[in-house]
Every structure is written in structure tokens, then in C-alpha cells.
């Protein structure tokens, strides 16, 4: 199952030049860029592992690509995303994020329904390989 989190999941996977172009867009906006990875893509998994700190004050995408490639080499079969942080007052949050690597086999989520009061159903999502 293709997990559709992130900004460009409905497009074919981005190639190196496309990723670089998005990084350049982030740098033009003065956003810091982080590389994060996980083997647990549950939609409520907020904290993926950080591959180092977000990168501040870069001028060129090559620096981000160097870290991304190092992360890919160390973790070839997990999800990796790039994530851009904006420190502008009133935002101070992520401004874009997109997946740049997926595992060969993506998991799917099973729904467990627990019937409670009335017709209410409590639902739990569980990851399955």
C-alpha cells in the first residue's frame, strides 16, 4: 500500500533533480531543512528519527543532498522525508514536508473496531507488514 503522507505522494517518486529543486525552493524561503526517517509510518507517529539536526543557513541544495544520501546509505529500506522549518513569527512550524524514500514493501493498516456504548465504535489502527 502506498502511504500518501507528505506533499507529493500522489506523484511518481521524485528524482534527484526534482528533490534538489524543492530544496532550493525551501532555501529561497530561508527555511531550515531536516532529514527524518522511520520504519513506523503510522499517521499518528509524529516523531520520526532525526538524521542530525535541521540544517540552518545553507545556501545550496548540495549540502542537503549530501546528508540525504548519507541517511539513505545507512537506512536503505525505511521511509525518509525532508521537512522544512520556518522560524518566522506566527508560523514557527513546518512549512513543507515530502517523502524521498520508501521501503521496498510498504505496510498496511488493519482497523480494529471495538463496540462500546450505543452504536459507538472505537477504532484502532495497527500496522501490518
Amino acid at each position: 500500500m502506498r502511504i500518501t503522507q507528505g506533499c507529493f505522494s500522489f506523484l511518481p517518486d521524485l528524482d534527484e533533480e526534482q528533490i534538489k529543486a524543492q530544496v532550493e525552493y525551501c532555501l529561497r524561503n530561508d527555511w531550515a531543512i531536516g532529514v527524518e526517517f522511520t520504519d513506523d509510518p503510522h499517521p499518528r507517529n509524529t516523531y520520526w528519527e532525526m538524521w542530525g539536526h535541521p540544517m540552518f543557513d545553507l545556501k545550496d541544495a548540495a549540502g542537503v543532498m549530501m546528508e540525504l544520501n548519507a541517511c539513505r546509505k545507512a537506512h536503505p529500506d525505511v521511509y525518509i522525508k525532508l521537512i522544512a522549518f520556518d522560524s518566522t513569527r506566527g508560523f514557527e512550524t513546518v512549512r513543507t514536508s515530502f517523502i524521498v524514500q520508501r521501503p521496498k514493501v510498504e505496510p498496511h493498516f488493519a482497523m480494529t473496531r471495538t463496540e462500546v456504548r450505543g452504536r459507538t465504535v472505537n477504532i484502532t489502527l495497527t500496522e501490518r507488514a
Partner: peptide, 9 residues
């Protein structure tokens, strides 16, 4: 919920 499970989103 079903759509969330089906997309991971």
C-alpha cells in the same frame, strides 16, 4: 477511519 487506514494519512 477506514480512509485513514487505507491511505496512512
Amino acid at each position: 477511519n477506514k480512509a485513514t487506514a487505507a491511505t496512512g494519512e
